[in-house]
Simulated assay, not measured.
Amino acid sequence: MTVTASLPDARRELLSLVGRTPLARIAADLPGPHPGFWAKLEGLAAGGMKARAAVSMLLGARERGELLPGAPVVESTSGTLGIGLAFAGQALGHPIVLVGDRELEPSMRQLLRSHGVRLEIADRPAAQGGWQAARLTLLRDLLAELPGAYWPDQYNNPDNTAGYASLAAELAVQLDHLDILVCSVGTGGHSAGLIGPLRRHWPALRLIGVDATGSTIFGQPASARIRPEHRVQSGLPGG
């Protein structure tokens, strides 16, 4: 298999569109009673919340010389980081190649491709390690075939969590007080990147992680995950 990718022109002015998202007070009725909460509307920024991490990882790699100008970026994703990387690639001039799997929703596949990325799909889970292992095997094949390609490795990259320092700073300015931070949890990047800086402002701050039923992250048995067809990149601070 030969993989080619066109070299996009850098458009660094796009970086000004990252962050500075508004807060909204949510008081509408929900299935369970609640006293109201603040939602950080990260979906209103270009590239969504994950653009913060994507830009941070690519800029960090460029500064260290690990990512050369115009070199392709290859990453495994369930969707949302892919949108952020597509944005970062457009801003910094890097073609983006993403590895998903058969469970990636058709709407997300269409959205990723509409952002100009190359999307490769693992069609069957690995005997050991399931879908994640299958995606990583395909990713390593792509790295071997793309000269100079860079893998951010979101699961082990400290620039992933560092990218959310700007989000923590915004919340600290926008809120007078915060008791509980509720984060969706995938890689754990944004929850880890937020809780440290925010606890310097509010030491008693509690963190609650949320994931879908059927995820193994919190020790549940693996099962089919129930997901809405259209994801909303919002929440407090969510993603």
Score class of each variant (00 low, 15 high):
Leu104Val: 07
Glu105Lys: 11
Glu105Arg: 14
Pro106Met: 06
Ser107His: 04
Met108Ala: 02
Arg109Val: 05
Arg109Asn: 05
Gln110Tyr: 12
Leu111Gly: 01
Leu112Tyr: 02
Ser114Phe: 10
Ser114Met: 14
His115Trp: 08
Val117Ala: 14
Ile121Val: 15
Arg124Gly: 14
Pro125Ile: 03
Pro125Lys: 09
Ala126Lys: 09
Ala127Leu: 14
Trp131Arg: 14
Gln132Ile: 06
Leu138Ile: 10
Leu139Ser: 08
Arg140His: 15
Arg140Cys: 10
Asp141Trp: 00
Leu143His: 07
Leu143Ile: 05
Leu143Tyr: 08
Ala144Gln: 15
Glu145Pro: 01
Pro147Gln: 08
Pro147Met: 09
Tyr150Ile: 03
Tyr150Gly: 00
Trp151Ala: 15
Asp153Trp: 00
Tyr155Leu: 03
Tyr155Asp: 00
Asn157Pro: 00
Asp159Ile: 06
Thr161Arg: 05
Thr161Gln: 06
Ala162Tyr: 01
Gly163Phe: 01
Ser166Ile: 11
Leu167Ile: 07
Leu167Pro: 08
Glu170Val: 11
Glu170Tyr: 10
Glu170Gln: 13
Glu170Met: 12
Ala172Arg: 12
Val173Trp: 08
Val173Lys: 12
Gln174Cys: 08
Leu175Pro: 13
Leu175Glu: 10
Leu181Val: 03
Val182Glu: 00
Val182Asp: 01
Val182Lys: 04
Ser184Tyr: 02
Val185Gln: 03
Val185Cys: 05
Val185Ile: 15
Val185Thr: 04
Val185Ala: 05
Gly186Val: 01
Thr187Met: 00
Gly188Arg: 03
Gly189Leu: 01
His190Gly: 00
Ser191Lys: 07
Ser191Glu: 00
Gly193Thr: 09
Leu194Gln: 09
Leu194Pro: 00
Gly196Ser: 13
Pro197Arg: 04
Pro197Ser: 11
Leu198Val: 11
Leu198Ile: 14
Leu198Asn: 11
His201Val: 13
His201Asp: 04
His201Cys: 15
His201Gln: 15
